[in-house]
Amino acid sequence: MKKRKQRVNSFMVNGLLLFLCLVWTVPTFGLLMTSFRDRDVVSKTGWWTVFTRPDQAELTLDNYEQVLSGKTITLVDSKGNQQTVKGDNLTRAFLNSLTVSIPAVVIPILIASFAAYGFAWMDFPGRKVFFILVVALLVVPLQISLIPLLRDYGRLELTGTFLAIWLAHTGFGLPLSVYLMYNYISQLPRSIIESAIIDGCSHFGVFWKLILPLSVPAIASLAIFQFLWVWNDLLVALVFIGSKPGVEVLTQRLLYLIGSRGQDWHLLCAGAFISMALPLMVFISLQRYFVRGLLAGSVKG
């Protein structure tokens, strides 16, 4: 093992790696720094001047206050000047994103787990055909569904409701969810399930009491997957929520900010960071499960 990690040219290897890591992190770091800088300096000097000329740094939390607030607020800058600004109400969008994400993660996983159990441990006519259908749908681009669903939603008056977007994310997430859950559940030892059935447990009982608790690792990695996908989604939200202000999610608000405040970098950066904070936290703390899910094979339509 030691030989395998032989550090030939370790200077070159580490140097190149460091350079790539810098290229990958500096853009995000710049965004973070900018979000804390005073509105007046952001548009005049680069964010790196915080380090080259620390005396003129002028760091502040005003930008966050402004993008989060739903009302008009008064900000006082370091020189004592008062300024009245209109908030961008990202708080509401944040809550909307949560309202969209949590059920849009739990519902497909629950439905997929049921289906995966059915495919793995029950026998019924059409089993193989239906599962082939699931595999075929894995890579179908969701664009193909947008127009027909939009027409259905129009008729059912669902457009702009939370239910509409939960169902959409459920539909688009199901093929991968069923596939991954099937891979996991079908590998569980047959003896556990059979002995439970012999003991008089119904399939329904086996599923709730045995399979779901045993599948926690698979569920965890799938949940992170689906959460990142839903939280970061723009297209599905644009199509099925549209411009309904009460329901708009973070990505939509952020897109709107880019359009209306394209040069107000202090606000854009703060807003972008708010949209990134939760997925980054989830990602860093649960990375292990995420990697496991990735390695279990992942292609999404």
Binding site: W24, G30, L31, N232, L234, I258, S275, M276, V282, F283
Partner: peptide, 17 residues
């Protein structure tokens, strides 16, 4: 890390770059 960021968030980061 960038995998956790939305395309829109990444859009802001890179528009700024």
């Amino acid at each position: 890390l960038p995998m956790a960021i939305s395309f829109v968030g990444a859009g802001v980061i890179w528009r700024f770059v």
